[in-house]
């Protein structure tokens, strides 16, 4: 086992842009943005890495919160933000490339979002 030290810092949505900016200034790269649905709320993890130091920012939002895009600082963030929108239905404000729900086309809308009763596939 090679446990990595992984610090996760819960922050408010309003602080997001400022904190991400700090990471950008500090020379971190964006590893991923991932969303998890816990009950009725969504946890969004923004992971950064610099020389194998792993840091994590976590915001917890409700389904109707508009999350600001970080693609102004990390240009490549659009893939994760579009994914977050297409799979979870989270609204992201100000993406540099907005696919408007067409990045990952799914047969049911927002499959990871609100509990949609799905028919058992044969």
């Amino acid at each position: 086992m090679t446990t990595e030290e992984q610090l996760t810092m819960p922050i408010e949505v309003g602080q997001l842009i400022g904190r991400v900016e700090q990471y950008k200034q500090g020379g971190y790269r964006l590893v991923q943005i991932g969303c998890t649905k816990i009950g009725e709320v969504y946890e969004i993890n923004y992971s950064f890495d610099k020389d194998f130091v792993f840091r994590n920012l976590r915001i917890t939002v409700t389904g109707d919160t508009e999350v600001p895009s970080i693609s102004g600082m990390y240009w490549g963030a659009f893939v994760y933000e579009n994914e977050m929108h297409d799979l979870f239905g989270i609204q992201v404000r100000g993406m540099n490339i907005d696919f408007k729900g067409n990045f990952i086309r799914t047969s049911i809308k927002f499959p990871f979002g609100a509990a949609i009763p799905k028919g058992e596939q044969p």
Binding site: T106, S107, I108, P111, K118, E120, Q121, P122
Partner: peptide
């Protein structure tokens, strides 16, 4: 043939 291990996934038709 059937969807295999992924047959229960929401995006798989079969």
């Amino acid at each position: 043939a059937s969807g295999g291990i992924f047959r229960e996934c929401y995006n798989v038709l079969g």
